[in-house]
Amino acid sequence: MSKGAVVADERLDAAWVRSWCEQADTALAELMQSFRSRHGFAPGRNTVVLATEEGHKATEQLVELTPIPSDLTTMYWVIDEASMPDVDSGYFIHSASTVAGHFRQYGAVQIDGEEPAVVFAGDGGGHLFALAGSGQVWRSTSASWFDQFDLAAAGLQEFFEGLTRRIGSQLRTPDGH
């Protein structure tokens, strides 16, 4: 997607995130059952890790470090991290402690016309996903914190729904692509 003025209609709901986690776990389990026969090798560890007390503490520390979008706080209250190396080229939602470390090292991502954004995920190609204060999700055009970012989703819910579609599309095709 190109840059635009799309704004998330609603803020992320924790109950919705929990439901997404259950759906994603079910779809990933199904994908992993057929992965070896489709690809000829064993899959990696594809999982959504639910938040723990340690994760909640890391989220609180991240909030103290930088003002993060409320949707990111909601997400981290439910999800600690996600690793999906076998969905397309891979998708990885970083833990709050990883995000804090990256923030200390690189700072916020600057996107024209947006509040500074916080990188929270990446893909297997090294592209980064950042959430801005508007609730919009942005994807880097290269494997860099400092290059251009294009609009990827109107919000985290749309971002997660896109991941669900990517998992589902691999289940529907014979070769997983």
Results as ranks from 00 to 15, higher is better:
S140Q: 01
V99Y: 00
G133H: 09
A117N: 01
S134G: 07
Y106V: 08
S134D: 05
D80S: 12
Y106M: 08
G126P: 04
G126M: 04
T141S: 08
M84D: 01
F120H: 04
E115H: 12
A130L: 02
H127T: 07
G133M: 12
Y106D: 09
E114V: 02
V119G: 08
A108D: 09
Q136S: 14
Q110K: 15
P116G: 00
E115I: 01
G125S: 15
E115R: 13
A82D: 05
W138P: 03
G107W: 10
P85W: 07
Q136L: 07
T98C: 08
G113A: 09
R104G: 13
A130P: 10
D80Y: 04
G135Q: 02
A132P: 00
H127M: 11
G90K: 05
D80P: 04
R139Q: 10
E115V: 13
L128T: 03
G125F: 15
T141M: 07
Q110W: 13
S140T: 02
H102P: 05
V87N: 01
S89M: 15
A121F: 02
Q110V: 13
D88P: 03
L128M: 06
V87I: 12
T141W: 03
G107K: 09
G126F: 04
G122Y: 03
G113E: 02
V118M: 12
S97R: 08
F103D: 06
P85T: 12
V137Y: 03
M84Q: 06
A100F: 01
P116L: 05
S89K: 15
F129S: 04
S134N: 07
G122T: 09
L131M: 08
G133N: 12
V118W: 06
P85R: 09
I111E: 00
D88M: 12
F120N: 02
V137W: 08
P116H: 02
I111A: 01
G125V: 11
D88V: 10
D112R: 11
V118G: 00
G107Q: 09
S134K: 09
G113K: 07
V119Q: 11
Y91F: 15
V118Q: 08
W138Y: 12
F92E: 13
S95W: 08
G90D: 11
Q110L: 14
S134T: 14
H94G: 03
Q110G: 11
V109E: 01
Q110I: 14
G101T: 12
R104H: 14
Q136T: 13
V99P: 06
E81T: 09
A100P: 02
E114P: 00
R139P: 00
Q136A: 15
A108N: 13
S83W: 13
P116V: 01
Q105P: 00
T98E: 11
G101D: 14
L131R: 05
E114I: 01
A108G: 12
P116C: 06
V87G: 05
G126I: 04
Q105C: 06
S97M: 06
V118E: 03
H102W: 14
G90Q: 07
Y91E: 08
